[in-house]
Amino acid sequence: MEATVVETGTEGKTWGGGHRPLKASYGKMMMWFFIVSDSLTFSGFLAAYGFSRFKFIDSWPIADEVFTHFPFLHGVEAPMYYVAFMTFVLIFSSVTMVLAVDAGHKMQKGKVTLYMFLTILGGIIFIGSQAWEWKTFIKGDYGAVETKGGNILQFLNTEGERVALADFATKLPGAIQSQSESEGIWFETGTSAPTYTFEEVKTGFMANENLLVRTGYLNEHGVPTVLSREESIDKLTNEGLMVVEGANLRHNEYGPPLFADFFFFITGFHGFHVFTGILINIIIFFNVILGTYERRGSYEMVEKVGLYWHFVDLVWVFVFTFFYLV
């Protein structure tokens, strides 16, 4: 569609407009501008994560011990395998995207359709995996005790294996229990109670001689410190405050609350980008099927949405490094 064109009479002169010194179309330039500003947003988040991590450098959780699950392999320790799988899915969907752009340059409508479809499929698999990752993270693993100072105490047996709260907490009579609306005359919903109270965990801990406490503080090898039995009892009775199971924005059983906050915020913001990327890809996909770009004589729109999709992949490469590896 031709927009109204205003002639200035200075075309052809150096400062008269109409020059394209960067040899890139308007739409592509604007996509690059957007990508630069969005990458600054993401680096702001990741730098804030680095700031908080340096602030708690000696008590930050080790990602290997937090993300150890793989779907359908319950109870198998699989550190980072699932995140590696997610990374491959996203890189591969980037490959199919760039193949679609390449086919678009050659005006091959059928190939563009196929590769766009595969790209959308990869995006959906990735975002589904991220939802599963969130679910596992929120549900938690072993459970822990939070101290008055906001630190996390985890439990080990003498062989150095993690022990879940359910394995040793003793049920005490008269402990809190969850009620539902059908049981009361006057009912207000509150936060859901943890499965065990702090008193129950403490009693169970005292009764089991072979249990030890592990603090979040890392020793000189970068491994969390394990206390002796006496130190453990002392720490738990004097500083223990509440039971934490899983993760939310205020408490998490893995370490400082900021760890979970940044996890939700950064992977959530990235997941939102993947989600919008899938939506834009679907719109372009239908335009390809309808032959819009065939009639226009150029598949440049595929290239522009491709830039965005690769950017999402690029961000994930950094999130993967700083959340799961470093």
């Binding site: 990458s39 600054l40 680096s43 730098a47 804030a48 700031f51 602030k55 708690f56 450098i57």
Partner: peptide, 20 residues
């Protein structure tokens, strides 16, 4: 992007280390 990000990361990490 590279210069702005390098500057931001440098300054925030030094500050975080100071607070630690």
């Amino acid at each position: 992007a590279v210069f702005l990000i390098a500057y931001l990361v440098l300054i925030l990490l030094i500050e975080g280390d100071y607070i630690y």
